[in-house]
């Protein structure tokens, strides 16, 4: 019996390689531990339609019981920036309860996480970083899953 995570990820990968919702693409999935996805936001003036954002998914062996770690990454070529959003720190860490152990549920999958993040960005109206962004980016060396976020915004 291979581990639960690799079986499940294999299935997801097969599915993802087939069809994905518009604006979401699989960049690479070299193994069953780390995948790279690109998303673009279609109708939100904050995000130029030609701009694409890159996300890195890291899966633990306990996936899907445990949430994957999802962060935005910066890349020079092709250019990938961190989307500006009140819940996305400029180091790429996303404050989204779905990705926390509290909000995560094994019925979610890579695709549904991408869709959630896409819709979170699409529904954004404020072109700003979270409060205390500079301080957080400077001081934080923790893994996203070890950070205790305070989820205060029920709209997202």
């Amino acid at each position: 019996m291979a581990s639960m995570s690799s079986k499940r990820l294999q299935k997801e990968l097969t599915k993802i390689q087939g069809t994905l919702p518009p604006g979401i693409t699989l960049v690479s999935a070299p193994d069953l531990r780390e995948w790279v996805m690109d998303i673009s936001i279609i109708d939100n003036p904050i995000y130029p339609p030609n701009e694409t954002y890159r996300m890195r998914f890291s899966f633990s062996p306990s996936y899907p019981i445990e949430a994957p770690e999802v962060v935005f990454v910066v890349l020079a070529a092709p250019e990938r920036k961190i989307p500006i959003h009140p819940h996305i720190y400029s180091n790429g860490i996303i404050c989204l309860d779905l990705l926390d152990s509290q909000g995560w549920s094994p019925v979610h999958n890579v695709e549904s996480v991408c869709i959630s993040i896409q819709s979170m960005l699409a529904g954004n109206t404020k072109a700003e970083r979270p409060p205390g962004d500079a301080e957080f980016v400077r001081s934080n060396r923790q893994r996203p899953r070890d950070i205790n976020f305070l989820y205060h915004d029920p709209k997202v």
Partner: peptide, 12 residues
Amino acid sequence: LENSLHCDICKE
């Protein structure tokens, strides 16, 4: 139909 016979956790 087949999808609905799958477990949502392991997708089998």
